[in-house]
Design a binder for these strands. Sequence first.
DNA 1: GTGAAAGCGCTAACAG
DNA 2: CTGTTAGCGCTTTCAC
Lengths: 315, 315
Amino acid sequence: MAHPTLEDVAARAGVSRALVSLVMRGSPKVGKERREAVLKAADELGYRPNIMARGLAAGRTGMAGVLAADLHDPLFASVHDGLADEAARRGVRLLLASGGGRPARERAALGELLDLRLDGLLLAGPRIAAAEIERAAAGCPVAVVGRPVRSSRVDCVTGDDAAAMARAVTRLVELGHRRIACMDLGSGRPRVQQVFKAALAEAGLAPDQDVLWRPGGAATAVVAAGDATGTAALTTLHRAGLDVPGEVSLVVLGDAPGAEVNGVTTVAAPAAELGRLAMAALLDRIGDGGAAREGRRVTVPPVLAERATTGAITP
Amino acid sequence: MAHPTLEDVAARAGVSRALVSLVMRGSPKVGKERREAVLKAADELGYRPNIMARGLAAGRTGMAGVLAADLHDPLFASVHDGLADEAARRGVRLLLASGGGRPARERAALGELLDLRLDGLLLAGPRIAAAEIERAAAGCPVAVVGRPVRSSRVDCVTGDDAAAMARAVTRLVELGHRRIACMDLGSGRPRVQQVFKAALAEAGLAPDQDVLWRPGGAATAVVAAGDATGTAALTTLHRAGLDVPGEVSLVVLGDAPGAEVNGVTTVAAPAAELGRLAMAALLDRIGDGGAAREGRRVTVPPVLAERATTGAITP
DNA sequence: GTGAAAGCGCTAACAG
DNA sequence: CTGTTAGCGCTTTCAC
């Protein structure tokens, strides 16, 4: 028998289907005798409950969906660690789908997840329009991580990139640096420079004539905006013959796996923690059973991991 | 109405449920008139088919499961690109689950995926025992990517690390290198050194007294076994004051995203292609409808991406 | 073409 | 405690 059903188990154990159902769900009100008979029969038959059928009948599945905007983003893997942890802790299974980095695909994946009628949906770094998220939330509990969404019925958990920038700068200032530059591979993003200038100002520093780092500049420290930029920064500094952290200190905003291996000092949102909080919010919302609670809005402060690319300035 | 059903649509359109079902699945044998009425009603109601119910009734879901051993492995994201592409091309939806890098979790995730009764299962780089994979394959079409599994009913698609090593070495030899060293952060893996020696021998070179790279050695080229090792190698070489590729050439086995950004020459299995082939094998198997075909075994040759860390030797 | 009837495998009242 | 009775939302014969 390829896939024995509840009925097969019942027949073999000589009991009714309902009894088997109770046993499978670990109900306490079944006699030890019969329970064991049922378990034995199920085991011998290699019985596995059909989740679809269960979900259909019960009206809930015990599963939550996770939509990853882009599997290539190493951040997602860390977020997922937190997500999975919290879900496991609360006995909820996770099903993932990927947006493949493209809004169109993401939209499609969202639709499929919605059609599965899972108990809830967690959107990780969604790139689709807020209105679409809102619409999804109308039919299913939704939480978002990694992107602020202002909506009454969506919980959302985010990091704080401005705070991260500020943390990087203040740390460098503590170390004695006064001429700090910023590096951004995705250059032209005005927000990065803006945030950088604000952080500088907050630390009581005036930006140099040029905010961005350039070889031969006077900067004694560099803040790299993003993981890719960070790796590139390291390479560039080395190529320029600069000793790190002897001559130049480097702080990277973001915490890709490579950073730890290479001993790069980083400031980043604690991804797993974001994930955990988002999942907690989602499960709470599911638990509330649609008590149209106000959307929870959580911002998590960044974490500094001081490794080997930063040092005190020694004139 | 939170989730209108087929029946609601039928009522609104003034037809029977069966007719709506036909329309929703795009059957050609429905009059234009009625079809449009149904579509209109469905749209107005915001109807979305319930996949669980559909799967239960139809006996197939139109979905395949993908079990990722470890989401942190950037390789998986690339494999998934290929997977998703092929699945989309053939009209199959994908549902992912993660093994979280731990065999125990992976086993659990496999069970959940199995319980969903999807049409097929794709295991990406599984770490669980071959026997467990075999067992899963008894109840559901299964294909494996990234790990060789010899089984009559499992298709599997893998890269070829020995060939990758050989490709790296022959390329370096073409460039004039004769003293080539190997670097392996996960040191102690005997297989790596063994494969390296074999590649050297094949290229007509004798290994130096010591196979592994060491600062101050005479090697003019280094092969780094793995992405992490590659990044570390680059840093180490730079720290040692060596010009790359002026004094030392570097080839990394593996193709993490950072490699391209940093212009590192790599040799790696074409991950997306592996994914595509594995998904194709799985869908073929599903299509065969359990015609206990012999397991397909595909090995894909590695690809050299020559970037900026390799150069001809100029004595 | 179209509608009625019979499930898919399971859960959830409800009587015994 | 146990078995019976209805469905969950959809697909699928099979007559009309």
